[in-house]
């Protein structure tokens, strides 16, 4: 039973309405003021991170191809593997078109997710997914540009987990923000959203 695909949570509905209201405001304002709920266009972002093979990556590197960006961490047992496996399924559904996408996981746990740790972890999912990490400051900068939040929470075993924005952000090749695929969203909507940025 795949419960999360059936239940559209109240939070999801509220989030979707807020998103649509936000989109309306965005359009009527004719892009004059960035919307606090939505990621900036990649062209206005300003972060600097390191990928899983140790190379520096900036927003400019994500332009020129449609991009799918999401936040997570490798010590995340439920939400992140679920998202990664969904993404692997979407890439498979897109066939060879998926090769034209940039797919990036930005870790919200840079202390544990070094480039090597990211490389080892994402190799279990799809080789087209790149992992991005940085210092805490660099991560906070990326989070601010994407308008996402993350919050370290202690766990009973003396360790910690991280609450974080779970949506997947889609961008057109020119860097313009396209849409969000919510965590609990019906997967039938995901692939059409991806086709739109690939068109």
């Amino acid at each position: 039973m795949r419960r999360r695909q059936i239940i559209l949570s109240l939070a999801g509905v509220a989030g979707a309405s807020a998103f649509m209201l936000g989109l309306g405001a965005w359009k009527t304002r004719n892009r004059a003021v960035p919307n606090p709920l939505l990621p900036l266009p990649l062209t206005s972002m300003d972060w600097r991170l390191t990928n899983h093979v140790g190379q520096e990556v900036t927003p400019a590197d994500l332009r020129g191809r449609p991009a799918m960006v999401f936040f997570g961490f490798t010590y995340c047992p439920d939400v992140c593997p679920t998202t990664l496996l969904d993404i692997a399924d979407w890439l498979e559904a897109l066939g060879s078109d998926a090769d034209r996408l940039t797919v990036a996981l930005i870790t919200v746990d840079p202390e544990r997710d070094t480039p090597d740790v990211l490389a080892d972890y994402i190799s279990n999912f799809d080789p087209r997914i790149i992992g991005l990490t940085g210092s805490m400051g660099e991560t906070a900068c990326a989070a601010a540009d994407f308008r996402i939040s993350f919050d370290k929470m202690p766990t009973v075993d003396g360790d910690y987990t991280i609450n974080h924005t779970a949506g997947v952000f889609l961008f057109y090749a020119n860097g313009r923000f396209a849409s969000i695929i919510d965590f609990h969203e019906d997967r039938r909507f995901a692939v059409p959203k991806l086709r739109r940025i690939l068109a």
């Binding site: 989030g15 939400v79 939040s149 974080h164 949506g167 965590f183 609990h184």
Partner: peptide, 19 residues
């Protein structure tokens, strides 16, 4: 050593997994 029941929740797009 520390098994627990959790529920993943998503509030305003932010995922958490409270006990």
């Amino acid at each position: 050593s520390m098994p627990m029941l959790h529920e993943t929740t998503v509030t305003d797009g932010v995922a958490a997994m409270p006990h």
